[in-house]
Design a protein around this nucleic acid. Structure first.
Length: 114
DNA sequence: CTAGTGACCAACG
DNA sequence: ACGTTGGCCACTA
């Protein structure tokens, strides 16, 4: 039985993030079984096939901010997508205490195919 | 092989 | 609230 590759595990987790919620890169890495590898998450998202249609915009950094350069094209796109799902962004910041997805870990772990 | 580069992060000052 | 620093590691030139 081959392990699901790290990058696929990251895509799997991101795909589970519910609408109207967000998750920091580092937490995605943790849930994917790759603690301390937040940078790998950003790389995995960049390389993700468009056909997967992942909710990539729900992944933000640990400070509640969008990680693209301010005013850049992808920055604006992510900001708009987040607001479309009712996520408030004030002064470029998202309140993690309000919007961070907090899955029931026991249940989630049983669901994961890895 | 080495050096630079990230959609990062926690710890400091 | 910032800016810096050291750690992280796959990928690229």
């Amino acid at each position: 039985m081959t392990q699901m590759p790290p990058m696929e595990r990251i895509w799997f987790i991101v795909n589970l993030i519910p609408e109207g919620t967000v998750l920091p890169y580092g937490i995605v890495a943790d849930l994917a079984g790759l603690p301390g590898r937040a940078r790998y998450v950003s790389r995995a998202l960049k390389l993700a096939p468009k056909t997967l249609a992942l909710p990539w915009h729900r992944v933000i950094n640990s400070q509640g901010k969008i990680s693209f350069e301010k005013y850049s094209e992808p920055f604006q796109t992510q900001l708009e997508l987040l607001r479309l799902e009712g996520i408030k962004v004030n002064a470029g910041k998202i309140l993690l205490s309000q919007y961070q997805w907090k899955p029931d870990l026991a249940t989630l772990v049983m669901t994961l195919p890895f």
